[in-house]
Nucleic acid binder design. Structure first.
Length: 325
DNA sequence: CAAACGTGGAC
DNA sequence: TGTCCAAGTTT
């Protein structure tokens, strides 16, 4: 409908009393969204390993990369083994990209593994092996964009940063703007709108950011929001107007079967299972149409995930040495 | 800026 | 069974 404008902006804070919740932890009014969400978070936050102080900034960074488009349930075991093997940037940087891609397993979007490996090397080379805390420096690292940079700054370093992911966009679109769903992209306006909701102190703001995300992930879900359990129940603009259905055209064809993505996945699955270069003939088996197969393989090479080796063989990046007979 | 980029689970 | 969805980034 209005693609140029942000769904997150445009409504004023409510002064309505929530009534049922005791929010004694703040000295300000107890009815703003941030403190309401935080109070809920205090009672309902999941005990995720990267939320423990022991996870450190590296643990937070790794979790954020893994969580880009991959559900928590699948990330958790992968994160544990990853951190056990590479507890800091230096250890990952010292290993091959191939091992990172292999350890990534089936989390999806394996370019993230490659970028995380490159990210670790950049952290070692440019930041002495310490995950940087400044937004500018985080944004300059491979695989780290608007969301992830702020997530690391807030969750690892306790900074006051608007952390806007799909969950927060949806939550605020409903609660504040009264819309059924958020728009497609994170805009500057989105960041500003969320920033305006954050408490003044760094510590409380970071906590509120985590609370907003958790609320979006557990309660204000895309499919069947659990409004009856939502702490925003009495103030949510969307619910207050009868929870109208989403307007506008439904988007995204996004098929998967038969796409280059599927073929890339099949190709990479073979290479992951092998310990070194694989004959091209072996890769030919994964997909019947040679043209698409060649295109997918070329794409993997172009992305730097796969490297051609002499003698019509291919290997995971960093493994082209081929010490196997 | 739209499109590309994996994968598996829930409904 | 097919569609929808999951803590985005890059080009």
């Amino acid at each position: 409908m209005d693609p140029a404008t942000s769904e997150l902006a445009g409504t004023e804070p409510t002064g309505t009393d929530l009534g049922s919740t005791d929010l004694a932890s703040t000295d300000l009014g107890s009815t703003d969204l941030a403190s309401t969400a935080t109070a809920w978070f205090d009672e309902n936050a999941r005990d995720l390993p990267w939320r423990h102080p022991s996870a450190g900034a590296w643990g937070v960074l790794v979790s954020e990369i893994m969580l880009q488009q991959t559900p928590v349930a699948r990330v958790e075991p992968a994160w544990r083994s990853w951190m056990a093997r590479w507890p800091d940037p230096a250890s990952l940087a010292a290993d091959t990209a191939a091992e990172a891609i292999r350890a990534w397993g089936r989390l999806g979007y394996p370019r993230r593994a490659l970028r995380l490996h490159a990210c670790a090397q950049a952290i070692v080379e440019q930041h002495g092996g310490v995950v940087p805390a400044r937004l500018e420096e985080l944004l300059a690292l491979p695989g780290i964009g608007t969301y992830t940079a702020r997530a690391v700054a807030a969750f690892a370093y306790g900074q006051r940063q608007p952390v806007v992911d799909t969950n927060v966009r949806r939550l605020i679109a409903r609660a504040v703007a009264g819309r059924a769903d958020a728009g497609p992209a994170t805009t500057v306006a989105d960041l500003d709108a969320v920033e305006a909701l954050l408490p003044a102190s760094d510590r409380l703001a970071a906590r509120a950011s985590a609370a907003f995300m958790e609320l979006g992930a557990l309660i204000c879900t895309a499919r069947s929001p659990r409004c009856h359990e939502c702490p925003f129940w009495s103030v949510c603009a969307w619910r207050l107007t009868g929870s109208p259905a989403p307007t506008g055209p439904t988007r995204r064809p996004q098929r998967y079967a038969g796409t280059d993505r599927q073929v890339r996945g099949l190709l990479l699955a073979v290479l992951r299972e092998e310990s070194g270069p694989v004959p091209a003939a072996r890769l030919d088996l994964v997909w019947p149409e040679q043209a698409q197969r060649a295109r997918a393989l070329a794409g993997l090479v172009e992305d730097g995930l796969v490297v051609p080796v002499s003698g019509h063989r291919f290997a995971l990046a960093g493994e082209e040495a081929g010490q196997h007979p």
